[in-house]
């Protein structure tokens, strides 16, 4: 189940090339279901073999803005795109610019699961909010929603941290206003479930898009 129907890796991981991403990228390169590309190779790369593009919070958004047509075309081929970070340029269909949360106490960072969803199945919101008793690592603001988006997580004022948008393009967009959701792993906390559950959900989502497209 690690390949697309054409036999190529399911995920294309956009490498932002910075120091903090190095470890995640090296781990990802060991996996046969992921293909890593340097972000500056995006303009030259045929993305059609891949089911899902994963973009982290260190990406060059000036570049993505220049390449927004390619991103739009990728999604309109019925693909999935996962972006984690703070948007400041309009490169992603339907997405609005990041709005930071006004913080008065550490409780303002508390994460709530808005509706049960396979990506966050068995994940304790308390463990998303607090790391060794300190909050603020997970998300510190939100992106205003596109029309008909499905909200998965929110902050105490109802600000959506994580949403799924199936309406702005022919594909599915997941936007998360925090660190790279794809990279959460490990046994120490229920938060470590997120990465693999996100990957499983993405495979199902891609299959559902393909089936929906076939029946049209």
């Amino acid at each position: 189940m690690t390949m697309t129907s054409s036999g190529t890796p399911h995920f294309v991981i956009v490498d932002s090339g910075n120091y903090f991403s190095t470890q995640t990228i090296q781990e990802t390169k060991k996996r046969d279901d992921c293909f890593v590309i340097d972000m500056y190779d995006l303009p030259e790369r045929d993305l059609s073999p891949y089911a899902c593009m994963v973009i982290d919070n260190f990406v060059d958004q000036e570049l993505l803005y220049q390449e927004r047509e390619q991103i739009w075309q990728f999604l309109n081929q019925g693909k999935v795109l996962i972006f984690s970070g703070h948007m400041f340029l309009p490169w992603l269909p339907g997405a609005s610019m990041f709005v930071p949360k006004l913080i008065r106490s550490q409780h303002d960072y508390e994460v709530s699961i808005v509706q049960q969803h396979p990506i966050f199945d068995g994940v304790d919101p308390e463990e998303m909010t607090y790391t060794k008793g300190v909050s603020g690592f997970f998300a510190r603001g939100h992106h205003p929603l596109p029309s008909q988006a499905e909200v998965l997580l929110s902050l105490p004022g109802g600000e959506p941290i994580t949403y799924i948008d199936r309406y702005s393009t022919q594909g599915t967009i997941l936007v998360h206003s925090g660190n790279n959701l794809f990279a959460y792993s490990g046994q120490g906390s229920t938060v470590g479930r997120i990465g693999s559950q996100l990957q499983n959900w993405t495979r199902e989502e891609y299959r559902a898009i393909q089936e929906r497209t076939r029946t049209l």
């Binding site: 932002s16 910075n18 919070n57 260190f58 990406v59 060059d60 958004q61 000036e62 570049l63 970070g85 703070h86 948007m87 400041f88 990041f98």
Partner: peptide, 10 residues
């Protein structure tokens, strides 16, 4: 400036 969000803000 690397075009990322944190450098943009700062």
């Amino acid at each position: 400036y690397g075009g990322n969000s944190h450098q943009f803000r700062t």
